[in-house]
Design a protein around this nucleic acid. Structure first.
Lengths: 209, 209
DNA sequence: ACCGCCGTTGACCAAATTGGTCAAGACCCC
DNA sequence: GGGGTCTTGACCAATTTGGTCAACGGCGGT
């Protein structure tokens, strides 16, 4: 790809990346047209092919970018929690999901894009990239849990199951949301807190409430 | 549409409907080609236009069909539970989700199709159909809860929130699943039970466990 | 005023895909 | 072989596709 792309202002880079991710996230690689990407970005198709030699190259770059962005966010939130010495399961997970939802506002389309890309049956994605995503996801939960104080849970509670449950809920809410306006994001987040609070109240031992 | 369609064998009808729903569920109305539908069904494009005069007519029929199918399933599971005089929240919800997942096996693509159709920005869908879906969804939870014995819950537990949480989880699992093989469906269902069991164990009063 | 550089574009292309038609094939029972 | 039903391949004009290319406008330097 043309390295001059990175000399563009961040907003303009984001404009192009977000448009592309949104479009690629809405249909297959094959069915997503360069023209629709350009139109969404309010930019000429020629410009796209000026910075990326191919539709394929653009796609691969986006996937790499998306993974990196996810990892950055994960690290940032883990580091932030670690910095404050936070070991509470729910407070940390809440931070995580808040950061995540805020990212959705900055990069609408990123999650849908990553999901779609992961299941893309076309051979656009190299096996390497797919594996990289697998690793990121697998490690994140374990790393998170290893830093949390899990003694607060009542007997018989599996924290790993709980992480998965809350993550499914959060992502489900995100998936069914059309427009990622700040108000919508806030609504989603407060809905998330309802679930987390309910679980916290009944899954923590009384002395930790 | 051509009424002869209904004289086809159920399997053949399903073949066509499922292919169409899967394809329509994978992209916009506009971006979904009649050809891809036909190819997925292993059928000639001409046949589609023999039974449905339009892409639009096919689409509208499918949406109607999908809603009816959802309502049938909901009724069937409610009636079944009512017949057995079942009033337990978790057991009934479990039946509901089991029926739902079994339906996914019969009609892979239906849920994704409905979701996509609901958010279709093209004016393909009439307002009437969209409203109908809204009603189905809104009533189902209330009807379900009204028949359940909610006294078993500890104080401070909102059953409505619980329904939503478990539904989000179940649908999230379905959404991230690629192929709806019987084994996959069983795996999903047993994962669902893990969540439900954990919640039941800690949200029910001790005397009901 | 002219330069070169920059991000950017509209016009253009051959090739593929689009929704939809139509006459004819394949198969059946009578 | 006739008549019906289900099904198809060939075909159509119109649009869309990924991608190219020469040129545009603006801007700082001289």
């Amino acid at each position: 790809m043309n390295p001059k792309f990175f000399k563009l202002s961040q907003e303009r880079q984001d404009l192009i990346r977000n448009s592309a991710m949104t479009e690629f996230g809405a249909a297959t690689f094959k069915k997503t047209s360069a023209d629709s990407i350009a139109k969404r970005a309010g930019v000429s198709k020629s410009l796209l092919f000026h910075y990326f030699k191919d539709k394929r190259e653009l796609y691969l770059y986006l996937f790499q970018y998306a993974i990196d962005e996810c990892m950055n966010i994960f690290n940032r939130h883990i580091l932030k929690a670690a910095y404050f010495g936070e070991t509470d399961f729910f407070r940390t997970l809440e931070i995580g999901h808040k950061v995540k939802m805020d990212m959705v506002r900055r990069h609408p389309g990123l999650f849908r894009f990553v999901m779609r890309a992961y299941y893309e049956r076309d051979s656009v994605l190299t096996r390497g990239l797919r594996k990289k995503l697998d690793d990121v996801l697998a490690q994140s939960t374990d790393q998170f849990l290893s830093r949390m104080d899990l003694h607060k849970f009542k007997d018989g509670v599996d924290p790993k199951v709980l992480v998965r449950l809350l993550t499914l809920a959060a992502e489900g809410m995100l998936a069914e949301t059309g427009a990622y306006t700040p108000e919508e994001i806030n609504r989603l987040f407060s809905e998330y807190k309802k679930y987390a609070d309910m679980l916290r109240q009944h899954l923590y031992k009384e002395e930790y409430l």
